[in-house]
């Protein structure tokens, strides 16, 4: 397994006092909270911070961790020395509300197991619904437009026969319904954390996010696309082929169109069974560069004959 540098993760020195560790944790937790941060990888970072704090906030766990020495680097292959935890007794501490399901192997190996038998001890006395789980999945715009099948892998805490908590990857095959929009949630009943003591499982909520698309911008159910056209197409009108998520379509540009004009392709947005979305095509007029003398003369002729002042 790989070594985790908990001090580095929290950005504190190895001899930092407890209150400094607390302050660093709170500052970083606010910054990287998945509901707040839109940064890539914020969720993983938030888990790392939580894991680091789970160990460093507890003087006993911190002391045990410190015994490995200061020479280890983040990500380095690591094997704890035999009996590294002799003389430490973690059993009283337990998790303090932290969601440990995504913690690293490093954490599980050293501090996870029966030492904090969250489920184990309670099994006989408690019956409790499993926790709801929340995850964000990034899908392609095309998958939302057509509907699709996806495989999602989540990390999940599992309690074995000895009541030990371990993290296992959990794959789910899910159907993405046609016309789902960004920010919507899919609720999968009973697919959350396992119930305790025979209680029902929690639910899984999947939040939909879209990967950046090279051509299209989405707003709710509507798709925006910018179409480059020539001045004569704008002035005289034309029929132009426009890409949509459902394939190419022909779009009629009315004569006398100005740059910035928006044309609507009805029903070409993200449409579900009940709701329709449209595609909006914004015209962008590309002004041809006058390179040769002949081309310049064309512009001069236009200047003379068109007699237009756009600032009036």
């Amino acid at each position: 397994m790989e070594y985790k540098d908990y001090y580095d993760i929290l950005g504190v020195k190895r001899d930092a006092p407890q209150d400094e560790i607390k302050r660093a944790y709170r500052r970083l937790a606010r910054k990287y909270h998945p509901d707040i941060s839109k940064e890539q990888g914020a969720e993983a970072k938030f888990k790392d911070i939580g894991e680091a704090y789970e160990v460093l906030k507890d003087p006993e766990k911190r002391a045990a961790y410190d015994k490995f020495g200061a020479n280890w680097k983040e990500g380095q292959e690591f094997k704890p020395p035999p009996n590294w935890d002799a003389g430490f007794e973690f059993s009283g501490a337990g998790y303090t509300g932290a969601d440990t399901s995504g913690f690293s192997d490093f954490f599980e190996e050293l501090f996870g197991h029966a030492k904090f038998s969250r489920g184990g001890q309670r099994t006989s006395t408690f019956r409790m619904q499993g926790e709801n789980q929340h995850a964000k999945i990034v899908i392609r715009l095309e998958d939302a437009y057509h509907g699709s099948k996806q495989t999602v892998t989540l990390s999940r805490a599992k309690v074995d026969e000895q009541g030990r908590v371990t993290t296992v990857p959990h794959s789910l095959h899910i159907t993405i319904p046609k016309g789902i929009t960004e920010g919507q949630h899919i609720r999968l009943e009973g697919q959350g954390m396992p119930g305790i003591g025979g209680g029902p499982n929690g639910d899984l909520f999947l939040e939909i996010a879209f990967a950046e698309h090279p051509l299209f911008h989405v707003e709710g159910r509507d798709i925006n696309y910018t179409l480059p056209i020539t001045p004569w197409e704008a002035a005289l009108g034309a029929t132009v082929t426009v890409p949509t998520l459902g394939g190419n379509v022909d779009l009629k540009i009315p004569p006398g169109s100005q740059g910035g004009k928006k044309l609507r392709l009805k029903g070409r947005g993200l449409s579900s069974a009940k709701k329709k979305g449209d595609q909006y095509v914004t015209l962008r007029i590309v002004v041809p560069e006058a390179k040769t003398e002949e081309q310049k003369n064309l512009y001069r002729e236009m200047a003379e004959k068109m007699g237009i002042n756009p600032r009036k």
Binding site: H173, Q184, H185, I186, R187, F205, S272, K274, K275
Partner: peptide, 13 residues
């Protein structure tokens, strides 16, 4: 056989 789960969409409706 691969079973694909379908959930409830929490949409505007």
């Amino acid at each position: 056989t691969l079973i694909h789960l379908s959930g409830t969409i929490l949409d505007e409706d």
